[in-house]
Design a protein around this nucleic acid. Structure first.
Length: 568
RNA sequence: CGGAGUGUAGCGCAGUCUGGUAGCGCACCUGGUUUGGGACCAGGGGGUCGAAGGUUCGAGUCCUUUCACUCCGACCA
């Protein structure tokens, strides 16, 4: 491709809404263009090329693993969503609309329903299973807050795969195969990543794993172990039970006047005890379908923090919202002095596993300005894991030290079970002629997000540094001064010879000066370049490696074979 | 939805307080010079100042309403 003919509107100036390197360089490098609506982007020729290359890597590996590509309608009938029960559960993220006949539709945010519908219509027998179908298509989620360019757009390209099995064991086999396949994909793309235990979220199902591309700019906090390979999203992370060296308060069962001790810190000072021996009670309003809600008290040790996703799952709610003091009072609760032990009937109580059987605990009295001491938590409560693992906690697996790191969720695989096949009636006949719901797995990769993830991991202050399998071109060839006939002639010759050798070359034949072209090269970030410049007088050209901007002088006569050797 | 802010040329911004010919940089077009680190000179095109209403002789500027977008929190590939 000749640069002079390529639409690559590079800019010197940074768009004012871009803060992330990937967002800045993808816009400045002319890969993508903001559409104006938030979270919507056009892919320009360079961006489209990268997207296609990434997509091909994904496709090749999946096809190798025996998956079959299909393409489902982007517009999906609302009735399917009602069948699965997600029409409401998915909430405002579903973009709903009606056609001229007043039929309701949804722009697909994920396609479990659609794929199940496809399969239930065409698969009837155990002989046709297992089956793994995928597509690489647009998705639309009306995100609450799109941001960071391609990282969190509303419209995005996703690979979504769905597998169908006769039983759980076969589904797990496929799940493991997909984990291996995903590892191959991310490795080929040159990404440093980690596979972690994850929460299943709105998709539903049991076991799930996320593929986290490690980057400080990642939106997810992941917990990793220094001692073993344990890794988990903070939303699903577990730890070894915590202990405390400080002595437990030796206080009998009493009610103590504690007027100003409304925080854990103040309470800890008041009694001069470690927060480990305090009961922290967090009130949240849990929302369910049809707008129903209930106040829930979550109790944990004063030294712990509530993990909201775990808490939300514990009460099976759609979402949790903080509660105002007025609402608390209406429910008969006093902020700062709440207790799970004698809570009003109307509120639900969930207690963290770590508190089960705890003794000598100091707790709110459910009475203004009073706490009670000497409590033992052994009642018939709903005990759950609702705690946020903290840095320094011990690994449940090996006892090593856990720490936080940041990641970009690039892939997520789920063991779905019959979450969708059952309500949608996706059944097959087994050897005995009995109808059974298919056991499913589902597997996603954020393909457009991968572009952002690659740049987050591979860039410098000057621009992008694409990895081998993601680069828009294999090689960039620059003629420094196109008025220099010898330079131009060599450029044309190289362009032709290298292209003929199967190398995808971006040939910079523009009239601009050396500096301008160099800046564009650095911004666009093609892995290697050949610069034809003044040293051609001495029969030399430069071979540049974008990573580190390493320059090597090579004889003009040998450059073709030199490049071929270096690029493969 | 809660909090904070911004809407003026394709992009980045000034002008708004104190009403009086709509500006600057980048980009773009024409001509010339220049060609190893985002060149220079000369000329040029491009705007219903987010929208609606109001005050006024006169509104980008003041008032009211509204919409959109951005940033900080809850959702997710």
């Amino acid at each position: 491709m000749r640069f002079s003919r390529l639409l690559v509107p590079t800019t010197k100036e940074t768009p004012n809404d871009a803060t992330l390197a990937s967002h800045i360089f993808l816009i400045r490098g002319g890969f993508i263009q903001s559409v104006g609506g938030s979270g919507l982007y056009n892919f320009l020729p360079l961006g489209k090329k990268v997207l296609d290359r990434v997509r091909n890597v994904v496709k090749e590996e999946l096809d190798n693993a025996g998956c079959q590509e299909v393409s489902l309608s982007f517009v999906t009938p609302a009735s399917l969503w009602e069948e699965s029960g997600r029409y409401e559960k998915y909430g405002k993220e579903l973009l709903r609309f009606k056609d001229r006949k007043d039929n309701e539709f949804v722009l697909g945010p994920t396609h479990e329903e659609m794929m199940v519908n496809l399969v239930r219509q065409s698969v009837k027998s155990y002989k046709q299973l297992p089956l793994n179908l995928y597509q690489i298509n647009l998705k639309f989620r009306d995100e609450i807050r799109p941001r960071f360019g391609l990282m969190r757009g509303r419209e995005f390209l996703m690979k979504d795969g769905y597998s169908f099995h006769v039983d759980e064991a076969d589904m797990k086999r496929e799940f493991d195969l997909m984990e291996e396949t995903y590892k191959k994909i991310f490795t080929r793309l040159g990404l440093e990543f980690r596979v972690v235990e994850a929460d299943s979220g709105a998709i539903g199902g049991s076991g799930s794993k996320e593929f986290m591309v490690l980057a400080d700019s990642g939106e997810d906090t992941i917990v990793v172990c220094d001692g073993c390979d344990y890794g988990a999203n903070i939303e699903a992370a577990v730890r070894r039970e915590k202990t405390c060296d400080a002595p437990a308060p030796q206080l009998g069962s009493e009610k103590v006047h504690t007027p100003d001790a409304t925080t854990m810190e103040a309470l800890s000072k008041f009694f001069n005890v470690d927060p480990f021996y305090l009961v922290k009670t967090v009130a949240m309003r849990a929302f369910y379908d049809e707008g129903k809600s209930q106040i829930v008290l979550f109790a944990l040790r004063g030294s712990d923090e509530l993990q909201e996703v775990k808490a939300c799952n514990a009460v099976d709610a759609n979402e949790l919202v903080e509660v105002s003091e007025e609402e608390l009072e209406e429910a008969g609760l006093i902020a700062g002095f709440m207790s799970p032990l004698n809570a009003p009937e109307s509120v639900r109580v969930v207690i963290d596993n770590a508190l089960k059987g705890a003794t000598n605990m100091i707790c709110g009295a459910n009475e203004k300005a009073y706490h009670t001491t000497g409590n033992t938590i052994d009642g018939d409560f709903d005990y759950r894991d609702i705690v946020a693992v903290q840095e320094g906690d011990a690994c449940a697996k090996c006892g090593g030290t856990l720490r936080y790191t940041k990641g970009i969720e690039a892939g997520h695989i789920f063991q779905l079970g019959t979450r969708y096949s059952e309500p949608l009636g996706c059944t097959f006949l087994d050897e005995n002629g009995k109808a059974k719901p298919m056991v499913m797995g589902t597997y996603g990769i954020g393909v457009s997000r991968l572009l952002a993830a690659i740049i987050e991991q591979h860039h410098d202050e000057k621009g992008c540094i694409w990895t081998k399998e993601s680069a828009p071109f294999d090689l960039y060839v620059m003629v420094s001064n196109i008025k220099d006939e010898a330079q131009l002639a060599l450029g044309e010759k190289l362009y032709e010879a290298l292209s003929a050798a199967g190398i995808d070359v971006l040939f910079d034949d523009r009239k601009d000066r050396f500096g301008a072209k160099m800046k564009d090269y650095e911004l666009i970030g093609i892995p290697h370049a050949v610069i034809i410049g003044k040293k051609l007088f001495d029969g030399l050209v430069e071979f540049v490696t974008r990573e580190g901007m390493v320059k090597e002088e090579v004889s003009a006569e040998e450059i073709v074979s030199f490049v071929q050797e270096r690029l493969c």
